[in-house]
Computed example of a mutant assay.
Amino acid sequence: MGFHMSSKGINIRDKHILTAYCQRPSGQSRYSELDLNEFIGANKGQLAWGSNNFSKNSRDVNFQLEGPENNPMLHAQLEDGEGNVRESQMNLADCIKNEDGHLSFMECF
């Protein structure tokens, strides 16, 4: 189950800090932050897991819950190394989980 199913108030701060109130098994919620720059980079104009510092070369970074499952989508515009700017998106639930009230990265690639 993705972190977004057990979290509220999910947001992106400073273009790279994921924030949320994550529910614990006890039912209580806890504020948590995760620096996405530690796990997401850019590769030829696309957001990429397993790299880092995506926010350095990105603009218009935003976050939205999308679709019928409210998928937590990160959007950014990135340079592709050839002078072009590309729109990229990534489902954060693919590699981020709520672990006892803390946002945490899980190996996913």
Rank of each mutant, 00 (worst) to 15 (best):
G2H: 15
G2F: 14
G2Y: 15
F3Q: 02
H4E: 10
H4K: 04
H4S: 10
M5G: 08
M5Y: 12
S6M: 01
S6A: 05
S7E: 03
K8Y: 11
K8E: 13
K8S: 12
G9D: 06
I10V: 07
I10C: 05
N11K: 08
R13I: 13
R13W: 13
K15C: 13
K15A: 11
K15G: 10
K15Y: 12
I17D: 00
I17Y: 08
T19R: 07
Y21Q: 12
Y21C: 09
Y21I: 10
C22I: 04
C22L: 03
Q23A: 10
R24T: 04
R24H: 05
S26W: 03
S26Q: 03
G27T: 02
G27V: 02
Q28T: 11
Y31R: 15
S32D: 02
S32R: 00
E33P: 03
E33I: 05
L34F: 12
D35L: 07
L36G: 08
L36K: 12
N37C: 09
N37A: 09
E38N: 14
E38F: 14
F39Q: 12
F39P: 09
F39S: 11
I40H: 05
I40M: 06
G41T: 00
G41K: 00
A42L: 04
N43V: 13
N43T: 13
N43K: 14
G45L: 02
Q46Y: 07
Q46R: 10
Q46S: 06
A48Q: 07
A48N: 08
A48E: 05
N52P: 07
N52D: 11
N52A: 12
N53G: 09
F54L: 01
F54A: 01
F54G: 02
S55F: 01
K56C: 14
K56W: 15
N57F: 09
S58G: 14
V61C: 01
N62D: 15
N62T: 15
Q64S: 13
E66C: 09
G67F: 02
P68K: 12
N70I: 09
N70M: 07
N71K: 15
N71S: 10
P72E: 05
M73F: 03
L74N: 04
H75R: 10
A76M: 08
A76S: 06
Q77H: 07
Q77G: 06
L78V: 01
L78Q: 03
E79H: 13
D80T: 09
D80L: 09
E82G: 13
E82T: 13
G83C: 03
G83I: 06
N84L: 12
N84P: 10
N84W: 14
R86Q: 03
R86F: 04
E87F: 09
E87H: 11
E87V: 00
E87M: 08
S88T: 07
Q89H: 13
Q89N: 12
M90I: 02
N91D: 08
L92M: 05
A93L: 03
A93M: 00
K97I: 13
N98L: 02
N98H: 00
E99A: 07
E99F: 05
G101I: 04
G101H: 02
H102W: 11
H102K: 11
L103I: 08
L103M: 06
S104T: 09
S104N: 08
F105I: 05
M106N: 03
E107C: 07
E107Q: 08
C108T: 05
C108V: 06
F109V: 14
F109D: 15
F109R: 15
